[in-house]
């Protein structure tokens, strides 16, 4: 049994949110302008991810030369990102799987055919983890790719939903994620079309629809937040060019 009431009968979660509330979101675009073609930082609650994008550039190996741009994604987790400092693990299977998921998702969203025979290198660094890691990575990568000026169909946004019995809980933090089964939902643009759906534990099929509905709505809000940041940055760039 958890040390907390995960979802109290009064409808409050362990951190004081209600079921349908996202954590505090902070995002920045073009944060590492000196060292990368595109960069972004996304904070969702206490989770924080930095994404650096290089490219499009000449592929390092011949195998990556294709008729469209190759996305290569790597995720590293800082050892200080969790409460207890973890030993450095190379080739963590979880991270490998995550990179593969990110790659598949963004190959659909980026117009890769416009940059044939090139490679786009995305490196994600997890600075702090408090649940919702994958969604945080997706959002950071969207912003960094936009910053790099790569053509995309639309924003890719993601958030996760945990299920406490019949009640879906939006954007679970680490405590909730370890206690409950959760799904990560990703959408492209402001559609209701789900492009990514990842479930790591077992869940009755009948409980999924309400979770998906809430997840999609959460993604839409995240898209707005990111759009606002992109526009703010664009306006700033425009203003500085006008000077």
């Amino acid at each position: 049994m958890s040390r907390f009431e995960i979802y109290s009968p009064e409808g409050l979660r362990a951190d004081g949110r209600r079921w349908n509330e996202l954590r505090h979101i902070k995002c920045g675009i073009n944060t590492h302008s000196k060292s990368a073609d595109g960069s972004a930082v996304v904070e969702m609650g206490a989770s924080k991810v930095v994404c650096i994008v290089q490219g499009p550039q000449e592929p390092e190996t011949r195998s990556r030369v294709r008729e469209k741009a190759t996305l290569s994604v790597s995720v590293t987790v800082a050892p200080f990102s969790t409460t207890e400092r973890s030993k450095h693990v190379t080739n963590d299977r979880r991270l490998q799987e995550m990179s593969a998921n990110l790659q598949n998702l963004f190959e659909e969203a980026v117009l890769t055919h416009l940059h044939p025979r090139t490679e786009i290198v995305c490196s994600l660094t997890v600075i702090a983890q408090d649940g919702g890691l994958l969604s945080c990575c997706i959002n950071a990568m969207t912003l960094a790719l936009i910053d790099a000026g790569l053509p995309m169909y639309e924003y890719v946004s993601a958030c996760s939903v945990a299920l406490f019995d019949q009640t879906p809980l939006l954007d679970p933090n680490n405590v909730e994620e370890t206690e409950l089964a959760s799904v990560t939902v990703g959408i492209v643009g402001e559609t209701d079309k789900i492009s990514l759906l990842i479930l790591e534990r077992r869940l009755g099929l009948d409980r999924l629809p309400p979770a998906l509905e809430l997840g999609v709505e959460g993604c839409k809000v995240l898209r707005q937040v990111m759009d606002k940041e992109v526009r703010r940055h664009g306006a700033m760039r425009l203003a500085s060019r006008a000077e």
């Binding site: 349908n20 509330e21 996202l22 954590r23 505090h24 979101i25 809430l214 709505e217 959460g218 809000v221």
Partner: peptide
């Protein structure tokens, strides 16, 4: 609206 955002001021 279905989804709400927590504001930065309320985080403790």
């Amino acid at each position: 609206m279905l989804v709400k955002r927590a504001s930065a001021q309320s985080v403790n």
